[in-house]
Simulated scan of single mutants.
Amino acid sequence: MTTRRTFGATALATGLLAASAVVTATPAQAAACSGTSGVTVVVDFTAVGGGIQTGCAPGDPASGLAALTGAGFSYSFHSRFPGYVCKINALPTTCTAPSGSAYWSYWHAQHGTPWVYSTLGAGSYNPAPGDVEGWAFGAGTQPGITAP
């Protein structure tokens, strides 16, 4: 897997921004990116009452968080844990403190390859065009589909 990374502090599968920030999405394609036209983002909402959604962040987003919003997803951080993504598209409905059984885990893959758990937070990771980013809520379970 070819990736580009910028190193920085990590905070449980997220990057560092203002603690209570809510970041809204920008319009994007509701399908996987074609080739290296952007970064494909898969968000698995299954554990919080939804399905699996895929979007395309066109171009070369500077971070995993930029890819998330560029693909049409919004997120918010926990007010007491800076950089901890507690909601994506307002799910789950209650923002809880980080725990081993209920958090948004962050993953990387290439099209059609297995998911790899991220060792960097989404604000510190720089995906390359053509990469696939994944998010899944639960106990660190990978997204429920193969990287498209």
Score class of each variant (00 low, 15 high):
M1Q: 10
M1P: 10
T2K: 14
T3E: 14
R4G: 07
R5M: 05
T6E: 12
F7W: 10
F7P: 00
G8A: 15
A11E: 10
A11Q: 15
A13G: 06
T14H: 14
G15F: 11
L16F: 15
L17W: 11
L17V: 09
L17I: 13
A18V: 05
A18Q: 14
A19L: 11
S20G: 15
S20Q: 12
A21Q: 12
V22F: 05
V22M: 06
V22K: 14
T24G: 13
A25F: 02
A25H: 08
A25Y: 01
A25I: 06
P27K: 14
A28T: 07
A28K: 06
A30D: 14
A31N: 06
A31E: 10
A32D: 06
A32T: 06
C33L: 08
S34Q: 15
G35T: 07
T36I: 12
S37W: 00
S37T: 15
V39R: 02
T40M: 04
V42S: 09
V42K: 05
V42E: 10
D44R: 09
D44N: 11
D44C: 11
F45N: 06
V48N: 11
G49K: 05
G49Q: 08
G50Y: 03
I52Y: 06
I52H: 07
I52F: 06
Q53P: 02
T54R: 04
G55C: 04
C56R: 03
A57C: 06
A57H: 01
P58D: 06
G59A: 03
G59W: 02
G59L: 05
D60F: 00
S63C: 08
S63E: 03
G64Q: 02
L65R: 03
L65K: 00
L65C: 02
A66G: 01
A67W: 01
G70N: 10
G70I: 04
A71W: 02
A71T: 04
G72L: 11
G72A: 12
G72P: 00
G72T: 08
F73K: 05
S74I: 02
S74V: 05
S76C: 08
F77M: 15
S79E: 14
R80E: 15
R80D: 15
F81K: 08
G83L: 14
G83S: 13
V85N: 04
V85A: 11
C86D: 12
K87M: 12
K87C: 01
I88E: 10
A90S: 15
A90G: 11
P92A: 14
T93R: 14
T94Y: 03
T94D: 12
C95I: 08
C95S: 09
C95M: 10
A97D: 13
A97S: 13
P98H: 09
P98D: 07
S99P: 00
A102F: 01
W104N: 01
Y106E: 07
Y106I: 03
A109M: 03
A109Y: 00
Q110G: 13
P114F: 00
V116M: 10
Y117M: 02
Y117G: 00
L120S: 08
G121H: 01
A122G: 09
A122S: 15
G123L: 04
N126S: 15
P129R: 01
G130E: 08
G130H: 01
G130R: 01
G130P: 00
G130D: 03
D131K: 01
V132I: 13
V132L: 06
V132W: 02
E133I: 15
E133N: 07
G134A: 11
W135Q: 07
A136V: 01
F137I: 05
G138R: 12
G138I: 07
I145K: 04
A147C: 13
P148D: 03
P148F: 03
